[in-house]
Amino acid sequence: MELPRIEGERDNIFLTSSNPTWDPARALVRIRELQTLPGALLPILHALQEEFGYVDDAAIPLVSQALNLSHAEVHGVITFYHDFHREPGGRHLLQICRAESCQSMGCNALVRHVENKLAAKLGETTADGAFTLKPVYCLGNCALSPAVMLDGKPYGRVSEEVVDFLIDSARRM
């Protein structure tokens, strides 16, 4: 009854990894799987982030070598895209939409509420390492604004009570 899953696939392609320790051997396995694709750089960076939860700077020379690119080119791509993190994030990723549709239903107040609750600003990770809080500009759930995504799971019509419940439940996990 659930959507068919592909083996080993996860809900969130940029979710923090269960084994975030940088390991060049594991990185090379992921790089080699994808390096012959046309335009392989983004798929490789997504794979590394899936593997480790972030893209370690030590991956840059490995990727450069595999794709025959300069270090600067790879670094430039990693830093261009909002998704790629250069250091490990929290155990949970909470994305709060702050685009116009959610603004019309009070997302700015929701953001302030969550920032207070977690004592972390958008873009930061909580002191206990439990949550990374990120803004997102539209989750495509605009008919049910305000919307958030927690570890790749979407939630709509999110009130302060609902987001409190989500955070508290995730913390206990």
Partner: peptide
């Protein structure tokens, strides 16, 4: 877009 993990998965399948 990466904000659509469900759409991505369904499309790939």
């Amino acid at each position: 877009r990466s904000e659509y993990p469900h759409g991505f998965r369904t499309m790939r399948r």
